[in-house]
Design a protein around this nucleic acid. Structure first.
Length: 420
RNA sequence: GUGCCUGUAGCUCAAUGGCAGAGCGCCUCACUGUGGAUGAGGAGGCUGCGGGUUCGAAACCCGUCAGGCACCCCA
């Protein structure tokens, strides 16, 4: 038993798993394209410097897979896509047609301890709208996210997209005398509010250097569900999500802050209402990132959604679709050695007519072939034995109802067309 | 990086320190021109690995590897 272990935090995609991944990719494609977004992708390998400036210390230093290539360059397996996108936009310079709407679905890597909802190799949907700094642009991107939730049968009772605005938070904290270096620490304090009980949280807050009055002000601030009305950006944002028909999914949440350093304005994340899981998607406005990687200043907004938590939430909600991993609709049995080639010709005939057809590659006992077709979930089985060959017919069995009919070979294609 | 828990058949799990088992799945047969249902039979194990304690270890101890969960961070 010295089987080689798979790399920790990776997943094997057996056909059923792959079918889910493809299904998700398809749903994502269809909602993204419904809003006119174009599919793109960046390289899986990037120079480490690309992330060093703006992604956040921990993500780069602790979690990125980094190695030196044979030329001595420090290379990272991409831990996220947004910096690549910013680089691609920056490199196109003035040639890009704005507003730019792009989406992508692909693999990412982060070296962290695996746990529920977190693997080291995962897939992400990224979607971004670049070149427009209006709150309506943020709202559109959020609406695409909400459209995916709808498209897979997740409701506002199950999932909410929680929204806040960094400029609002910074001005609120400014009023409490919190700015500069304390800002980052206070973000951490806010972020941890839901994970700790009240007493521990207060202790943690004062450890971080918040005064008693600042702490009181902070608590009041985090309890004020109407604070968004003082942010022109958020007022406009919520009016837009309303106009886009997704307001039931969207709500203001003063505790949302987001970890990545490059966010500048409105930020949001989707959470399951029951609170069993991590964020399903997260994103926001990042107006300085393109210039940070050397391009002209361009405003941008977008989010990423990981496949792992999304799948957990779908499983839990029962919204997971029945996915058949075998693509064939027809199964051709092989009766005996003499008729093997005739069966192959039949299968070929079906494929030429555009039917996805699987053929059993060995003349084993029929029960075994039927059992195989059944397990594979192929809906129709065709039998071509000596009798059928002599009569110029094919027996077609509906595996679901068990009904079987002898069909003349000339009429077969028309008959099968009617079955689908 | 820190802490807690768990490794037994393909899968899910049993087994007071005393013969390593069940259910599901798989294979065969009843039924050699028909899958699912039923019944009968069968295959499948270095109990993760290495050491120790013991007359005796799947069980207890140490180490190691792997997995799960939480913290950190984040999709």
């Amino acid at each position: 038993m010295s089987m080689i272990q798979p790399v920790r935090g990776t997943r094997d995609f057996y056909p059923e798993d792959m079918a889910f991944r493809s299904w998700l990719h398809g749903k994502i494609r269809s909602v993204s394209e419904a809003f006119g977004y174009q599919e793109y992708d960046g390289p899986f390998l990037e120079r480490l410097e690309l992330y060093a400036a703006k992604s956040g210390e921990e993500l780069v230093k602790e979690q990125a897979y980094v190695f030196k290539d044979r030329g001595g360059s420090e290379i990272a397996l991409r831990p996220e896509l947004t910096p690549s996108l910013a680089r691609m936009v920056a490199q196109h310079g003035k040639a890009v047609l704005l507003p730019l709407r792009w989406w992508s679905f692909g693999p990412f890597w982060r070296y962290e301890r695996t746990q529920k909802g977190r693997s080291r190799e995962f897939f992400q949907w990224n979607i971004d709208l670049i070149g427009v700094d209006t709150p309506a642009a943020d709202a559109e991107v959020v609406a695409v996210g909400a459209s995916l939730l709808k498209a897979v049968g997740l409701t506002p009772e199950l999932i909410r997209i929680k929204v806040n605005n960094r400029r609002l938070v910074e001005s609120q904290l400014g009023n409490l005398g919190i700015s500069g270096q304390m800002l980052g620490k206070t973000f951490q304090v806010i972020d941890r509010r839901e994970k700790m009980d009240a007493a521990a949280w207060r202790a943690y807050a004062s450890d971080q250097g918040l005064s008693e009055t600042q702490l009181e002000g902070l608590e009041e601030m985090l309890g004020d569900l109407n604070a968004w009305k003082r942010s022109e950006e958020l007022v406009s944002f919520f009016a837009s999500t309303d106009a886009l028909g997704v307001s039931e999914f969207v709500e203001y949440d003063p505790t949302i802050i987001r970890g990545l350093d490059y966010y500048t304005g409105t930020v949001y994340e989707a959470r399951d209402v029951a609170g069993n899981h991590r964020a399903i998607l997260g994103g926001g406005r990042y107006d300085d990132l393109v210039s940070a990687v050397g391009g002209d200043p361009i405003s941008a907004t977008g989010f990423a959604m990981g496949d792992v938590v999304f799948q957990l939430v779908l499983e839990e909600s029962g919204a997971l679709p029945e996915i058949r991993s075998n693509p064939a609709n027809f199964f051709v049995t092989t009766f005996d050695d003499e008729s093997t080639e005739e069966s192959m010709r039949l299968a070929t005939e079906l494929r030429s007519a555009g039917f996805r057809t699987e053929w059993y590659p060995e003349a084993v006992r029929l029960p075994r072939q039927f059992k195989y077709a059944d397990r594979q979930g192929i809906p129709f089985t065709l039998i071509l034995g000596p009798e059928e060959i002599q009569n110029g017919t094919v027996a077609v069995k509906d595996m679901h109802t068990g009904e079987q009919e002898n069909v003349a070979r000339e009429e077969l294609i028309t008959y099968l067309e009617r079955l689908l």
